[in-house]
Design a protein around this nucleic acid. Structure first.
Lengths: 144, 144
DNA sequence: ATATTACCGGACATTAGTGTCTTTTATTTA
DNA sequence: TAAATAAAAGACACTAATGTCCGGTAATAT
């Protein structure tokens, strides 16, 4: 459903949310905890910094941390920020002229899918996810 | 949502369903009607023949036709046949160990998405879609 | 039979996504 | 100030998807 970049991003953001106790996390620590290829995670984090979802500090003791406002975002917000929601908004069959008045064969069904996906992926904020995990409602170690 | 190959396939199959009056359709006709790149459509049709969703006849007057049983398939069946449904069945965050007893942060929501997509894409068979179009419930010319 | 037609098969080109490696830059610590 | 650390930046490699091109093969028609 999502690209690797988006998958890694979501999991990295949740990881940072869970470890946001005023200490910074390095790429190598995250990569080994999350079982991601380290160099690629580095690139992904670079992107997240550019998108202002994550902050970073260079040098010894440096690393990454979660920008506060990112806690209020939903998974849908993150997906939107990274790869856009065109795949949900465009016609399921790729027809440019498809709309309510000129519906493709699966227009209504796909519209319903789109609404449902958006609802599902915006049901919880990162902060709510963080709380669920910290309250034991979900497993802490979500790597493989 | 779907790959170009899958998009083209679905639209080509519907096109063939609407023009199944015992006459064969050539690649060039389909490509110009559906506004597809001709050479690539050729490859896609080759694939559909191999998957036995479509039949073909060589030589002058030759072309493609829809295999009868394909009329009973749903869009979901076609997607499954072409790219599989792994993108719906696997964890939304790509976690191998994610399941009901060890749910990832968006397990329940994604499960719901998966069910909803499957339901939506299997609501109608190709034959039902064909009838909807022929009865004027949907536009005939679905290209761009 | 032979030329024509149209799909088949394989090779190749292009692009985007994924992933690696090396150098540079910013920061801290000694 | 110099050395060490860690992210940033850029170049590069690999893979899959998309797309093109061409010679081969099967069928038709003259």
């Amino acid at each position: 459903m999502f690209s690797k970049t988006t998958e890694y991003s979501i999991r990295a953001i949740i990881y940072l949310a869970l470890n946001n106790n005023s200490k910074l996390i390095g790429v190598s620590e995250m990569a080994s905890e999350l079982r991601f290829p380290e160099a690629f995670l580095g690139k992904v984090l670079q992107l997240l910094v550019k998108k202002q979802l994550v902050g970073s500090i260079k040098g010894p003791g440096g690393g990454f941390y979660l920008i506060d406002s990112t806690l209020n975002l939903t998974i849908l917000n993150i997906v939107d920020s990274l790869e856009g929601l065109e795949f949900l908004d465009k016609c399921g069959l790729g027809l440019h002229s498809c709309n309510k008045n000129n519906p493709c064969p699966i227009h209504d069904e796909y519209k319903n899918v789109s609404i449902n996906v958006k609802k599902a992926l915006s049901a919880k904020s990162i902060n709510e996810i963080k709380n669920e995990i910290e309250n034991g409602k979900r497993p802490q170690s979500f790597h493989f």
